[in-house]
Design a protein around this nucleic acid. Structure first.
Lengths: 167, 167
DNA sequence: ATCAGTATAGAATAATGTTCCGTTTCAAAA
DNA sequence: TTTTGAAACGGAACATTATTCTATACTGAT
């Protein structure tokens, strides 16, 4: 077990208090970021201005981190998702930072989490198929020199996948 | 090991071929869905019309599944992420469907994957803190009657988290 | 009750999305 | 090589939406 990685606070301005209206706006935008301000205003029984300014505040405060187009992996020939668990040989600050830098540079790695338990990291890897994963494993992960142990868990189906964190 | 859950194809129209320009558009929109069509056009050395029509086609084909506002969990007091691994007692179709229906209804569950290995499912749970996770565990997961075994892995830090699948 | 700060509505303006149409490009068929 | 048709494109016109501005209404503290 270790605690590598970024633990510093976010770059945005300090925290802001969110009321029920802000929460409602977030919930709607999490589902559909293209919803117009007028539609939002209608749902909240407000005019456009306050909705607009609430959104702007939440953007500047870093509450809304990003607006993203979510692409269906299977439609772009990336149908296989693998969870790859990794434990390191050396857990020193320098060795950890090196590992993180390398892992982060791989576009196949959608997610890298520093976790508790017998492994140090969980990677979520998105690739075309098993062959592509094998090649990723051999040519990219296999080239890293600090890996003690590795284990792959394959995703057979996605039951639920949401970006909503507000509830 | 089982294979519960939705394996049918998506609701959108049939697949479309994507060329380099489409890929470039997707990459940009994955990072910033609010980028204007004219800005996209400028980056691709195109006019607005073809960019607009390419985006519309990809939306209709289901390549672009959604436009989402991504909210920072820590900013809304949901600072703890837990990976919760679950194996079921009964793997029959009916029992599996019941479990899925219940799990899906919990807002704390961001993600539910049907996986290979010793467990059947991995849940990604997003909550305020350890106390909230304990309560989720006892009051929600604990009420399910089909769980054989359960294991929690805690996320200590997020090294990388992206929604980009196009590369 | 008064004041200061904040939130709001409504209208005006700026920016962006969307459509239209004539032109170009490109590849297949002759 | 020429012809032809379909698809992609550019530029302008139009429609919708975001953004700003100003005046008003609200809220809490003194």
């Amino acid at each position: 077990m270790n605690n590598l990685g970024n633990t510093k606070k976010d770059n945005a301005t300090e925290n802001i208090a969110l009321d029920e209206k802000d929460i409602a706006i977030l919930q709607l935008l999490e589902e559909d970021a293209k919803m117009t301000i007028r539609d939002l205003a209608a749902k909240l029984n407000l005019s456009a201005t306050p909705v607009y300014e609430r959104i702007r505040k939440m953007e500047q405060a870093g509450v809304i981190r990003q607006y993203a187009a979510i692409v269906d992996p299977s439609k772009i020939d990336k149908a296989l998702t693998v969870l790859c668990y990794i434990s390191l040989k050396e857990h020193g600050k320098k060795a950890g930072a090196k590992f993180i830098k390398e892992i982060t540079s791989f576009p196949e790695v959608m997610e890298c989490l520093n976790i508790s338990g017998q492994f140090d990291f969980m990677l979520k890897v998105q690739v075309k198929d098993m062959l592509a994963y094998h090649e990723f494993n051999v040519n990219k992960l296999g080239e890293l020199d600090n890996i003690r142990h590795m284990e792959s868990v394959f995703v057979m189906s996605v039951i639920k996948a949401t970006h909503r964190v507000v509830y």
